[in-house]
């Protein structure tokens, strides 16, 4: 019983962060702030949902897999945040150079 309540709470919190991430992607004014919203909030949301489901499924192997999913997502997401931001900055710089020259 108490396990189910904790699962529900974790999933609801996860959903909240997903909604926050999506709203950030939709509403923020430029790419860099959108990146910030997406790569932080969504990962946290995934973390909460992963924790909730690991608790619900309650099998050690599945928990290990779910945990590794979250870990890889953190790694991939933060790296891609950096890569996209750098890509965008380079694009903007070369565009500015072209406009000036």
């Amino acid at each position: 019983m108490i396990k189910e309540v904790i699962t529900v709470i974790l999933l609801v919190v996860g959903c909240f962060f997903f909604l926050a991430g999506t709203l950030g992607v939709l509403r923020f004014p430029d790419l860099f702030s959108r990146l910030h919203a997406l790569t932080k909030a969504d990962n946290l949301g995934l973390g909460f949902i992963a924790a909730g489901m690991a608790l619900h499924i309650a099998s050690p192997w599945a928990a290990l897999k779910i945990f590794s999913i979250w870990l890889f997502t953190l790694l991939a997401s933060s790296t891609s945040c950096y890569l996209i931001a750098r890509f965008q900055r380079e694009q903007e710089q070369s565009k500015n150079k072209k406009e000036r020259g």
Binding site: L11, G14, F18, G21, T22, V25, L31, R34, L35, L38, T39, D42, N43, G45, L46, I49, A50, M53, H56, I57, A62, I66, I69, T73, S77, S80, I84, F87, Q88, Q91
Partner: peptide, 23 residues
């Protein structure tokens, strides 16, 4: 880059859906 960003969003959300579906 903005559009690529959304693929990250879809990927993360899709993974969450799959996790919940697994349960």
């Amino acid at each position: 880059a903005d559009r690529l960003l959304t693929t990250q969003l879809f990927g993360t959300t899709g993974m969450a859906i799959l996790l919940v579906m697994a349960g």
